[in-house]
Structure formats: C-alpha cells, structure tokens
C-alpha cells in the first residue's frame, strides 16, 4: 500500500528559522528518510515554497479562473497531486487548465513551486 504523508506547520514559524535551525531540521528528517530509503520503502520527498509563491486555478464553467495565492477554501479537501518539470508558471497554468478540461466541475488546482525535491527510489505503480 502507498501512503502520502502530508506536512503541516506554521509557514511563518518555519520562515523564521535560522540557517542553522533549518539545516538541523532537514538533516534530522533526512536521517529518518534514509532508514526507509534503505528498505526500498521511500518514494519522492518534496518541500514546497511558501504560499506567497502559489497560484490557484479555480475551475469554472467556461474558462477557469487564475487567482494569485494559495487555495484557501475549506469546503473542498486535498485529494491528490501532480508533479511536473517545466520552465515557467505559464506552462504550469496551461497544464492545470488541461486538467480542468479533462475533469471539469468544482474544485481547484493550486500550483506551487518546490523548494526541495528528492526523487526517491522507484515504487510499484498501483
């Protein structure tokens, strides 16, 4: 079975970390990752940039709406994600719009650049 473990914390608190504090947290986490990676159980690990770097595509009848900032509604739940490797935000928006066409209706796609990415070992598809 594959599980995603999502990280929540106060963005402002994390931004206030000194370089040393940040390095300490990251290396402590890396020690845990290492154990699971060695057992072939770890997939990709990602850390996102702050929500100020986010752009949200809100699905709408007709053309979807591009809004600056993170997804801020509470009516909808976090259901999944895509990871894409592209050059610009515009490309990411095009991708999200294609997704919105493929899966119209309600909901949104929040587009957030990554701050840290570790691809991890290959896992079995399901």
């Amino acid at each position: 079975m594959l599980y995603a473990v999502l990280c929540y914390n106060s963005e402002e608190a994390v931004a206030a970390w000194s370089r040393e504090e940040e390095d300490k947290v990251m290396s402590d986490l890396a020690a845990v990752e290492k154990k699971y990676a060695a057992a072939g159980k770890l997939g990709p690990v990602a850390r996102l940039m702050p929500t100020t770097a986010a752009t949200t595509l809100r699905k709408a009848a007709g053309d979807s709406l591009v809004i600056d900032g993170p997804f801020a509604e509470t009516k909808e739940q976090f259901l999944g994600f895509f990871l894409i490797d592209i050059e610009t935000l515009d490309e990411a928006i095009v991708f999200a719009k294609e997704l919105a066409v493929a899966n119209p209706g309600v909901g949104a796609y929040e587009i957030r650049p990554l701050r840290v990415f570790k691809p991890g070992g290959p896992l079995e598809p399901m």
């Binding site: 940039m49 702050p50 100020t52 770097a53």
Partner: peptide, 16 residues
C-alpha cells in the same frame, strides 16, 4: 539558491 528560486517564482507570477 533557495531564496533565488523563490524570487524567480515570484517574478514569474508578477510577469503574468
């Protein structure tokens, strides 16, 4: 580089 990348992402947003 992390600060630089965040800045580049913000510039990209602003350009739109």
């Amino acid at each position: 580089q992390r600060m630089i990348r965040e800045a580049l992402a913000l510039i990209d947003k602003a350009l739109r």
